[in-house]
Simulated scan of single mutants.
Amino acid sequence: MTEANQTATEEPLVLREDRDGIAYLTLNRPNQFNALSEELLDALQGSLDAIAEDKSVRVVVLAGNGRAFCAGHDLKQMRGQSERAYFQQLFTRCGQVMTRITQLPQPVIARVHGIATAAGCQLVASCDLAIAEEGARFAVSGINVGLFCGTPSVPLSRNVGRKQAMEMLLTGGFISAQQAQAQGLINRAVPLDELDEEVMKLARTICGKSSASIALGKAMYYKQLEMGVDQAYQFASEAMADNMMFEDVGEGIDAFAEKRPPNWQDR
């Protein structure tokens, strides 16, 4: 077990445990429903930066300690500030953490329980994959306190349809895990007692693939999303041609022909 942002007298804000190529990151402000304080954002950024350079990590699982996944920004901390520059810096910082998730070479799976609201819902939408327990609920609820969830709308609108996203943003209302799955915010919803097993099944499946090819593919996927169709096809074609030069591809094709498991280069 390694711990991020720990002092001699304080609990770590992000817990990290590595097991069988999977890095488990757990937000650790349970009494505040894992609200994203400045300090927690810094701790999460540090953990993600460390994982990005760690070749032993093939998949990341992001979870929350206590009764909820993440309740968004720390409103109490925010209320103690009054300068526009502070809020500009805070929301920019949060956006950088979300972007770091998509820039990470390893896939990131959100393990969601309880609630994921405002920037917490943004965090789910920013992860590559998400599995939630059936009782989980999601909202971009800033409008309920007079604050339109502008930055959460960025990944939300890239996951769900426009009208579904606008309804969430304009009403601040919750949607269920089943609605979140139907709208594309999460991959699936499962009973709480099956949540860890389902997350592990997905993580282990990804661990069995070529990490070099996954890193290339993840980077290509997010870049092509922002392109026109013709440009996206050209970019994807170049990425696939590069991918074909990987030793893992030759090994994978040989293994398929020989009806045996592939022996990836980084194993």
Rank of each mutant, 00 (worst) to 15 (best):
A136I: 01
S126R: 06
K76P: 01
M78H: 09
V108G: 04
A50N: 09
A118F: 15
G142S: 07
K55G: 12
A119L: 14
L104V: 10
Q122W: 06
T117K: 12
Q45S: 14
Q88K: 13
C121N: 13
S82V: 11
A130T: 03
F33S: 14
M98Q: 13
F69K: 02
A110F: 10
H113G: 10
A118G: 00
E133A: 09
I51W: 07
A130C: 10
T92M: 13
G80R: 13
A125M: 07
D128H: 14
F69R: 04
C94F: 11
A136C: 05
G95L: 06
F69E: 08
V145G: 01
Q88H: 12
Q88E: 15
M78R: 12
L44S: 04
E133N: 08
M98L: 15
L62D: 07
V59D: 06
G95Q: 07
R67E: 14
P107Q: 07
I51C: 08
A43S: 15
A118E: 07
G114Y: 04
S47Q: 15
V59K: 09
G135S: 15
N34A: 04
Q89L: 08
L90V: 02
L62P: 10
V60H: 03
C94T: 07
E134Y: 00
S47R: 14
R93S: 14
Q89A: 15
F91V: 13
Q103V: 00
D74F: 13
I131E: 09
P107A: 08
C94I: 03
R100P: 00
P107K: 09
Q77Y: 02
I109R: 04
A50T: 08
Q88D: 15
C121P: 00
R100M: 12
